[in-house]
Computed example of a mutant assay.
Amino acid sequence: MASPKLHMAFRKYHRWLGFFLSGIMAIYALSGVLLIFRPTDFLKYEQVQTRQLSANLSAEDVSSAIKVRSLKVIAEDNETITLNIGEYDKASGTATLTRKDYPIVLAKMVKLHKATNNSPLFYLNIAFGVSLLFFVVSAFLMFMPKLPMYKNGLKIAGIGVAVAVLTVIFGS
């Protein structure tokens, strides 16, 4: 069995790391909630973008030149190609796109939350995940196993694990 000194050390590290990571935890929490609403226009505003493409492109060429996921050609006539996010003028080669996106601060928070292994933020996400795993382990080392608080904590943790497993099984 571990000594009371070890348990106190874990309490101290848990507390210090918790204070240190409180800012990034707040950012991840806010951006995670914001990502729930990503299919909607919640907190998004319109951004108009103009791109200069070659003149007289076909609808397929316009789609491949713009490179936007979920781009669809809605209509085409002699002068323009109408897209679901804008319009392409065949004579001038100008594509005017209207998209909705978050304000710059929120966009950066979402980008941080969605970072992949191709991003330099990848290392921050790994460090944050490892830190959260430390919180999980150290939570069980904050109290001596003989104390009633520890035993109650195990019961509450068991309920939490059961809820998490049920959420994963039935929530997806």
Rank of each mutant, 00 (worst) to 15 (best):
P120T: 02
V73H: 02
I126C: 02
Y123S: 05
L83F: 04
L112A: 11
S3Y: 01
N117R: 10
L35H: 14
F42W: 14
E46T: 15
L6H: 13
V48L: 10
K155Y: 03
Y102L: 12
F134V: 10
S138R: 01
V161S: 07
A75Q: 07
L6C: 07
S54M: 11
D89H: 12
Y88P: 11
A107Q: 13
N125R: 07
A107R: 13
T82L: 14
E60W: 04
F37G: 13
T50P: 05
I104Q: 11
L147S: 14
A139L: 01
G171K: 00
A65Q: 08
D61G: 13
A127H: 01
D89A: 11
D101E: 15
I159A: 15
D41M: 09
M142L: 08
F134R: 02
R38S: 15
I159E: 08
V168C: 06
A65W: 03
V130E: 06
V48N: 08
F140N: 08
K90H: 13
R11S: 04
T98E: 07
R99M: 14
L124F: 03
M144I: 03
Q52M: 10
D89Q: 12
V165W: 00
S131R: 04
S58C: 02
T96P: 07
A157R: 01
K67W: 02
P148H: 06
F135S: 10
K44C: 13
E60C: 05
S70A: 09
S22Q: 03
G23F: 11
V68N: 11
G171L: 01
N84S: 09
T82D: 13
R51A: 15
P145A: 00
L17Q: 04
A162H: 03
V137P: 08
F42P: 10
S138M: 01
S92E: 03
H14K: 00
I169G: 03
S22Y: 03
V62G: 04
M25Y: 08
V110H: 05
G158I: 02
A139W: 04
T80V: 13
M144H: 09
P120C: 00
D77L: 00
W16R: 07
V165C: 02
